[in-house]
Amino acid sequence: MFHYDGSSCNGCDIEVLACLTPMYDIERFGVINTGNPKHSDILLITGFVNTQNAEVVKSLYRQMPDPKVVIAVGICAATGNFFRECYNALGGVNTVIPVDVYVPGCAARPEAIIDGVIRAAGMLEEKRNMLKDRK
C-alpha cells in the first residue's frame, strides 16, 4: 500500500496513520505502508487534487505495476468536499485517475479505511484474474 496526501486538511492522514498503530494494526492483514509506488498494489489518496499535484498523482499511478487499485479516502478525495470551489482545485481523485474504492467520512474512521483496504485487496484479486483472461 502506498499513501499519498493530496491537498487535505490532514484529518484523513492522521486517521490513515492511526491504522498503522497497535490499536488497529493494518499489518495483521499483511498490509504494509511502503514509500515506494513500485512495490505497492494499492494507492491510497487523501485530499483533493489541485493543479499542482495532478501530475504527481498521475505519475505515481503510472509507476505502479499492474494489477493496481486506487482508494480515495475521505470526502475530499471523493468529490473535493468544501474545497472544490477553491481557485486551484480540480476536484476528487477521479478527475485524474480511475478510483476503485471510495471511503466516505470527514474524516474517515480508521475502521472504514481498513474496510476499504480489504475491499481493495479483493478487487486486486479480480483485476489479476481479468489480466490473466486477457492474456
Binding site: D25, G30, K38, P65, D66, P67
Partner: peptide, 24 residues
C-alpha cells in the same frame, strides 16, 4: 511493538503475489 502482526505465511503470499504482477 504491541501489535498483532500478519499471518506466518504472509511472506509466501507476498512473493506469490509479486510473481503475478507486471515486471516493470
Amino acid at each position: 511493538q504491541g501489535r498483532y502482526g500478519p499471518p506466518v505465511l504472509q511472506p509466501f503470499y507476498d512473493v506469490l503475489k509479486l510473481f503475478e504482477k507486471e515486471n516493470l
